[in-house]
Simulated assay, not measured.
Amino acid sequence: MAAALRKILTFGSMLLPYGVHELKRRLNNRHKFSADVARSLAENRQLAGLHAGERCFILGNGPSVKGLDLSRLQGENVITVSNGYLHSDFDKFQSRYHCVPQITYGLMTPEDVIRWFNEMHSHLGGQELFLSSTEAELVQKNNLFAGRTVRYLVLGESFDERTSDEIVDISQPVPRVESVPVMALMIAMYLGFKEIILLGVDHDRFLSSTYQYAFDLKVQKGKDFTVNADGVLTRGRHDEFQQLARLWRQYRAISNIAKANGIRVFNSTPGGALDEFERRPFQTWFEE
């Protein structure tokens, strides 16, 4: 009964303005991927438990990061996301992995994505890159990320339809995400990390009605359809809260998976609204 109700609510949310666009995208891309992506998924099995027992930091792009000394991450396992290569101290700590979720096309055109990916490639060091399979064809056709290890995730079903507390297997289609830290959390768990620390995962724009970053965007500047040129939200509270409800359910599912598998997830973001994980100040991770 509960599962059926979740499916009804999920479908209902698709009737919202952004939901209509998202529903079309899901129908067009539902588990549809090339032989190359299928091979890439199979290769993801090599990653299972690669960092067993270690800790990692997932670095988001929220403005709270401005108050952190990111140079302290040097020597740590760091997963950055989206435009995270623009962090002021990025060259000092150099992340191990970099994640980009499925891209919403509209203001962001395929040509924009090519320019963004080229910018990304020029700033990243030797990081392995995780993309959504929806961008695989564009990457291959335009010979993007030459010489870099690029892995794909097939972001297919909904967390609402997933009943298992097993670690998400990224060599198979995985639940789609509302925000890239959820993607990074799935990857970190599959890699075997036993302590995962979130930084800059603010998720508080519903309180401020603005969406800011810890840095100035370059290629992606002005390409987010949910905010205007000043970073002020363009959609109303109703639509915003529907998206947040989906996002928080994903974090709750991740939290349950972590607990069932002996993984500890901490939120060391200064401030922010995310309340699904234990809080711990950033500096305490570096105390003797």
Rank of each mutant, 00 (worst) to 15 (best):
H31R: 11
S34T: 14
S34I: 06
A35S: 15
D36A: 14
S40R: 06
S40P: 08
E43P: 01
E43G: 05
R45W: 00
R45M: 05
R45S: 14
Q46Y: 03
Q46G: 03
Q46P: 01
L47A: 09
A48F: 03
L50E: 14
H51Q: 15
A52K: 14
A52N: 12
C56F: 06
I58V: 12
I58R: 08
G60F: 03
G60M: 07
N61H: 06
G62K: 05
G62Q: 05
P63C: 11
S64F: 02
V65T: 08
G67E: 10
G67M: 04
D69F: 02
D69C: 03
S71R: 15
Q74C: 06
V78R: 11
V81Q: 10
S82P: 02
S82W: 04
G84I: 11
Y85G: 07
Y85Q: 07
L86G: 12
H87Q: 15
S88P: 13
S88Q: 15
F90S: 12
D91M: 07
K92L: 14
Q94I: 02
S95A: 15
S95G: 12
Y97A: 08
Y97I: 02
H98V: 05
H98Q: 08
C99W: 01
P101F: 00
P101E: 00
Q102P: 02
Q102D: 03
Q102T: 00
I103S: 00
I103F: 00
T104R: 01
Y105H: 02
G106Q: 03
M108H: 00
M108F: 00
D112W: 01
W116V: 01
N118E: 15
N118M: 13
N118H: 09
N118W: 01
E119G: 02
E119A: 04
E119K: 06
H121D: 15
H123G: 14
G125H: 09
E128Y: 01
L129Q: 11
L131I: 03
S133K: 09
T134S: 13
T134N: 11
L138Y: 04
L144G: 09
F145P: 01
A146I: 04
A146V: 09
A146Q: 14
R148M: 10
R148P: 07
T149Q: 12
T149L: 12
T149H: 08
V150A: 07
V150M: 06
V150E: 11
L153K: 05
L153N: 13
V154N: 04
L155V: 00
L155M: 14
L155D: 01
E157N: 14
S158K: 05
F159H: 07
F159V: 14
T163D: 13
D165N: 14
D165I: 05
V168W: 02
I170A: 06
I170E: 08
